[in-house]
């Protein structure tokens, strides 16, 4: 068996691939070829059927009923729960907060991650040390992160405002002011996840064939040009992966804002209540309207899918336009 595989020709994506896939018709049984793909993905779907599909269907069923968390199923109400929820001012507040925190966390996070990864991809001394150091925050449990940061961000007794005071700044009203509270929450998220995304980018960068860079160097491309013409297009699957997972995770943000104060309801004016917190408050809070909570869950699901698709389209466009440029070189 040989691993000699010449450097991949720069190819227009997708097109030449198709015939290759058909090429798998060797002596091995047809069934092996036909069934294996399904067999290999089956563990996920089997498990999903038990732990995912039922909850999903259950939620859908609940969302069209008048359903008290404890009291259980009531009358069928059709879309009424959805209508009720959308009309609540609090729902709009929650949407605003979620998007604000999402933008404040995911955008800087992805940009920082790709930047740091590019730096780490260089020929550094003590590589292992730097790489592990960057990932360090990820080992701190979210609960612990919240505990630590809630002490750092305390309005009067917190470290950050204390430090700001020494240079005659602040105090910043971390809890009262909506934007400040979003920044504080986003910084918890960024703290824990930037290093994680950095390493994912780094792994992908290492997989980029070095020959491409050599060729680029010969052609006299600058480092920056190399980055945008080779690295970014080659990272496309990874960028798509990170953008989609960050979108999903970001729009579902729950733990950090919930633990940002001791009441866990998102502030006195719900200034940092996110959609999942709203969902939780509807279902588990005082009202215990499981039906409305389920409706919010489905609305959120649809929003995530739409935003995810938009992000996917944008990301694909950006990185493939880069790829074309690279190809034309």
């Amino acid at each position: 068996m040989s691993v000699i595989s010449p450097p991949k020709p720069r190819r227009a994506p997708e097109v030449p691939r198709e015939p290759r896939r058909i090429a798998f018709r060797q002596r091995a049984g047809r069934w092996d070829v036909k069934l294996s793909p399904y067999l290999y993905i089956s563990p996920f779907f089997l498990l999903f059927a038990v732990t995912g599909l039922f909850p999903l269907a259950y939620t859908a069923y609940v969302s069209v009923h008048d359903w008290h968390l404890i009291g259980g199923q009531g009358a069928f109400v059709g879309m009424q729960n959805f209508v009720d929820v959308v009309q609540q001012p609090r729902f709009l507040t929650a949407l605003r907060n979620t998007f604000s925190i999402f933008l404040l966390s995911s955008v800087p996070q992805v940009l920082a991650a790709i930047g740091i990864a590019a730096v780490l991809d260089a020929n550094l001394r003590a590589r292992t040390f730097w790489r592990m150091g960057v990932l360090l925050p990820y080992v701190v449990a979210p609960v612990a992160v919240s505990l630590i940061f809630s002490k750092l961000f305390a309005d009067q007794s917190g470290l950050i405002n204390a430090v700001l005071a020494t240079v005659d700044l602040g105090p910043i009203r971390w809890h009262a002011d909506p934007l400040s509270s979003h920044v504080a929450i986003a910084s918890m998220v960024n703290f824990r996840w930037t290093g994680y995304n950095t390493l994912i980018f780094l792994a992908a960068m290492q997989a980029v064939p070095r020959d491409l860079y050599e060729a680029a160097v010969i052609d006299g491309a600058s480092r920056l040009r190399q980055f945008f013409s080779i690295t970014v297009p080659m990272l496309r699957p990874t960028i798509i992966f990170i953008v989609i997972t960050a979108t999903i995770g970001g729009l579902q943000i729950f733990d950090e804002p919930r633990m940002f104060d001791q009441l866990g309801q998102g502030g006195s004016d719900r200034q940092w209540m996110t959609v999942t917190m709203y969902l939780y408050e509807l279902g588990w809070g005082a009202q215990k309207s499981f039906g409305r909570a389920a409706a919010v869950a489905w609305i959120l699901f649809l929003i995530i899918v739409v935003i995810g698709l938009i992000n996917f389209a944008i990301t694909r466009r950006i990185s493939s336009s880069g790829s074309t440029r690279g190809g034309k070189r």
């Binding site: 002490k151 305390a154 009067q156 007794s157 001791q262």
Partner: peptide, 12 residues
Amino acid sequence: HLLQWSDDWAAG
């Protein structure tokens, strides 16, 4: 002006 159970309250 200290919200009960907050870290600021405890520090108070």
